[in-house]
Amino acid sequence: MKIAVCLKRVPDTTAKVVIADDGVSIDPTGVKFVPNPYDEYAIEEAIARKTAAGEGETVVVSLGTDAAQETIRSALAMGIDRGVLLQIAEHPDPAAAAALLADELATGGYDLILMGKMAVDDSQHQVGPQVAERLGMACITAVAHLKIDGGTVTAEREIEGAVEVVRCGLPAVITCDKGLNTPRLPALKGIMAAKKKPLDIKPVTAGESAFEVLSLTLPPDRPPGRIVGEGPDAVPELVRLLRTEAKAI
């Protein structure tokens, strides 16, 4: 089986967000960048499936700046066979990103295309289905359990308060949710081997953006709260406040 993984380089989830002077982006100074956590489930799934099958190829494709090479190498260190960087000056909007990824993936002969259900930076969760639509492939999103039996994919995805069981054929685009697997850490030997694996760099340019970012701001501070009291004796006062002041119950 030939498996592609789409990978995005994103700011570390613990990074403090500082708004840049342009007012529409974050200031990357001092921010550590990491593989998108949901894409790590996709990487793990690809490696585990190839290992279990004993044959096949895994390829990671990342759309991003030159710095994304390091992110690609972290996937290679985990065990992906080779990487492709679709090199671009800045991240385009999701539709343009999907178009560029689909162009690259269309000719690869992939049986399975995996990626995270969303990227934790722009939180759009749409590149997966958009890629699938462009490739005319089946797509199941936010998958937390995946079974592939011959050419049939059976996936489970969480819907509010229940689990949806979804079936499709191959080739397919699957977007991955937490719970699918536990991504491995890159072993030290893997890190050393990664720099010897192939990494193609292909410059690309994006079309017009479907939206314009007007502003990026920090969320408003919540008004200062108060400690109602200590221990269980404070409970009646809390309940009174919730009822009469906050009107929350």
């Binding site: 759009q124 969760h125 289905p129 699938a132 949806e164």
Partner: peptide, 22 residues
């Protein structure tokens, strides 16, 4: 929702545009 997050981008793709989620 789980459904809306699956469906909206498919529709956006048909319209060759991006959607805005959440």
């Amino acid at each position: 929702t789980a459904t809306g997050k699956d469906l909206a981008p498919r529709v956006a793709a048909r319209l060759e545009t991006s959607c805005a989620t959440e």
